[in-house]
Structure formats: structure tokens, C-alpha cells
Design a protein around this nucleic acid. Structure first.
Lengths: 205, 205
DNA sequence: GCGTGCGGTGAAACGTGTTTCAATCCAGCG
DNA sequence: CGCTGGATTGAAACACGTTTCACCGCACGC
């Protein structure tokens, strides 16, 4: 069994330092710059300790993604995207998310790469990321932010729209990673997608 | 510049053997089983030769993806998805694509992982994959298959629909890679997405 | 106080992707 | 025929993710 929140403050603190170091290194040099020896040294733990808490390099980066996304979700909850229509708010949310991520391109590339590796061991953590994204998108759709934790009460239509839009964004971000999209093209694609998907959904309501 | 079809039959033949070996190994044991020493040995080339043609392990797997996708595109061109409506045909196409890929899960996981790594060096090859997917989706939309090469004449609406659906499928396949989706849930998601997206598009036509 | 056990440590070892390089092969050319 | 330049080879070297292991320290129950 994976240790669920060991509650040991010393252990917590160590794991946090490890993740922060990971983010720092990825921010500077991307995926390859996250050398585990460096992470361990910089976080002042031994390799054994690092590997007790995180099972792989990807695990580390997905943990970073979870942390960063949680931070974004908190900000979005405090300051929800404005707009008169669901479409405006959802598009606004994706623009914010994209801008925030592109501010640290190396880190973003590294985190997305790790989360797209398809490691079954990471499925749960990646699932948390998707769930947070879903909450933010549906919150924007409703015009009422959803708490970042706790039960969410999302109906089928909202879930479909939210998941589909998140998936489109995810795929586009991966294209951006390799240089096949720009910030402008991402925003344009999301705007068009939201329009497409919301119109389709509105027909039946 | 990357060598464009060197036309040297000996070189071609060697590259082909390398890719086939890659596919074979990935089919059996997935990403980790594609050990470059094994690939080189099995394809009867030296490491140096392998690395002259392919710049990395991901490069190898993306080349495999291109080859496999081209083969699928040829089959789809010969035997286009049947159906009375665009939606039926597109859903049918995605079901076929999904089924074909899930038939060799290890290979598929490995190829998608490589193509999602976000390596700028692979952008072009990954772009070819996306283009082939686009042609197949738009072909299904029209009910008239599009040749796998040559100019394509795809208008803006078709391109948007095709690209968005391909992106959804791509993201869902990556979720499947880590075990967060099943064949049934992929098909269900694609069915719902096609409905959503086509209804949205039809409103303005 | 004393054992006990769980983390943690530090360093070495291993596997594999990637690079390098001298030696060799070979096709085309004078 | 001999030269020449580029491709191929074979093998070693290197870098880094991952694993292992012997040893240590400390909190906790007796």
C-alpha cells in the first residue's frame, strides 16, 4: 500500500522540500535537468529517502504537477474567471491556465511529459490533476467556483463538457511542448472548441 | 537538414529492419523492452548506424507510430467506415482505430508515450501522424476517403472538427495507457464527443 | 536503561540510453 | 589500379535512473 499522508511532520517537510527542488530544477532546465542526484543533494536527503517517497522521476514530476495545479485551483477559487456567459468564462479560464503554464515553459513541458508517460503507477496522481481541472472548468461553466476538495456534485452533462475540454487542452499543451503550437494558437483552439462543444450541448437544453 | 528519403535502397532497407525490430520488441514488452542494444543486434546493425538514422529511442518509436498509422490509413482508404450519417462513420472510424491499437497494447502504449514526450526534434514526425489522423477523420466525416498523401483540400470547419476529435482521442488513449480508461469507455467517450461536436457544428450550417 | 525497529544515510553497483573513436569497408573516380 | 571520402562497425566510455546494502540514530515500549 502507498503511504497515505503519513502525518509525520518531518516526513511531510522532507517530501515538500523534494518537490520544491524538483520544480526549481525543472523550471531552469526542463525534464533532463531534473537529475535525481541533484534533487537529493539540493533537498538534503539521501537517494534512498527520495526513492522511498517517490517511485520514479516521473512520479516526482507528477507530484509537482499536482502541487502546481492545486495552487492554481486555489487561486481560481479565490478569483473565478469573469464573464457574462459560460463560454466566456470557460475560455477565460483556459487562457489563464495556459498563460500561467507558459510562464515557466520548461517546468510545464517536464510535468506534462511525465503525466503523459502512461505509467499505471502514476494513474491516481494524474487522476487528481484531471479532477482539479474538471472542477475548475465546471466552476467556470456554472459561474460559481467549486471547492478544490470534497465532494463535487457534477452532473453528467457538466462532466462530459468539462472532461472533453480538459482533454482537448491537454492534447494541445502536449503539441505546444514540442513546438507545434503557440500561446496564440492554443487560445484560439480553446476558443473554437468551447464554442463548438457548448453549442452542441445547448441544443439539447 | 534531416535526410529526406535518401533513396539509397540499402539504407532504406536497414532503416526498415530497425523499425520492424522496434515494433516487434515493443509489442512484446513495451517501452522498456525496446533496448537499443537489442534493436541493433536484432536488426544486424551497429549502434552507430542506428543512431545515425534515429536520434533517440523516442525517435524510433515515433517512426514506428508513423509506419503503423500509415498502414492503418491505407486500410481505411481501401475500406472506409460505413454509415448513413457523418457521426456514425466518424464514431465507427474511431472504434476501428481504437480496436486496432488495443490489439497490441504494449506497442501502442510505447508509441503514444514517445509521441507525447514533447521533443521538438520529433515534432515533424508527430505532425505526420496527426495529419494522417486528420485525413481519416475528415474522410469519414465526408463519407469519401482521402488519399494518404498529396494535397488534401480540407476546409476550416472540417479541419477544426477533425483536429479536435483527434485531440480528444489522443488524450483518451493516453489515459488508457495508464489504465484510467478501458476500450468500452474510450468508445463511449468518442461517441459522446462526436455527438457534441457535430451538433455544435451543424447549428451553423 | 535497554533493546527494537523503522527510517534515514552514504556509497557503490547495475542497466541502459547516448556518445565517441579508431579501424574497416566500399563505391566512385582519376 | 590505387586513392579518397563517406558510411559502417565494434567496442569502450559516459551519464543518469534505479536498486541495493551495511550501518546509524532515535523514539518508544518494557
Amino acid at each position: 500500500m502507498a503511504a497515505e499522508t503519513p502525518a509525520d511532520p518531518l516526513v511531510e517537510e522532507r517530501a515538500l522540500r523534494i518537490i520544491e527542488t524538483t520544480i526549481e530544477l525543472a523550471e531552469q532546465g526542463g525534464f533532463e535537468a531534473v537529475r535525481l542526484r541533484d534533487v537529493a543533494a539540493h533537498a538534503e536527503v539521501a537517494m534512498g529517502t527520495l526513492y522511498r517517497r517517490f517511485h520514479s522521476k516521473e512520479d516526482l514530476l507528477v507530484a509537482a504537477l499536482e502541487r502546481e495545479t492545486r495552487a492554481m485551483a486555489d487561486r481560481v477559487f479565490e478569483r473565478p474567471p469573469k464573464g457574462d456567459t459560460p463560454a466566456e468564462r470557460v475560455v477565460g479560464f483556459f487562457m489563464t491556465a495556459t498563460r500561467g503554464n507558459l510562464r515557466r515553459p520548461n517546468l510545464t513541458r517536464a510535468m506534462f511529459r511525465a503525466s503523459a508517460a502512461g505509467e499505471p503507477a502514476l494513474a491516481q496522481k494524474v487522476g487528481i490533476f484531471h479532477d482539479l481541472m474538471l472542477r475548475m472548468v465546471v466552476g467556470a461553466l456554472r459561474g460559481a467556483p467549486i471547492p478544490t476538495s470534497g465532494p463535487a456534485e457534477i452532473d453528467d452533462r457538466e462532466r462530459l463538457l468539462g472532461e472533453v475540454l480538459t482533454q482537448i487542452w491537454f492534447a494541445v499543451m502536449i503539441s505546444w511542448s514540442s513546438g507545434r503550437e503557440t500561446q496564440a494558437s492554443i487560445n484560439e483552439r480553446m476558443r473554437a472548441s468551447v464554442e463548438l462543444v457548448l453549442d452542441g450541448a445547448n441544443r439539447n437544453s
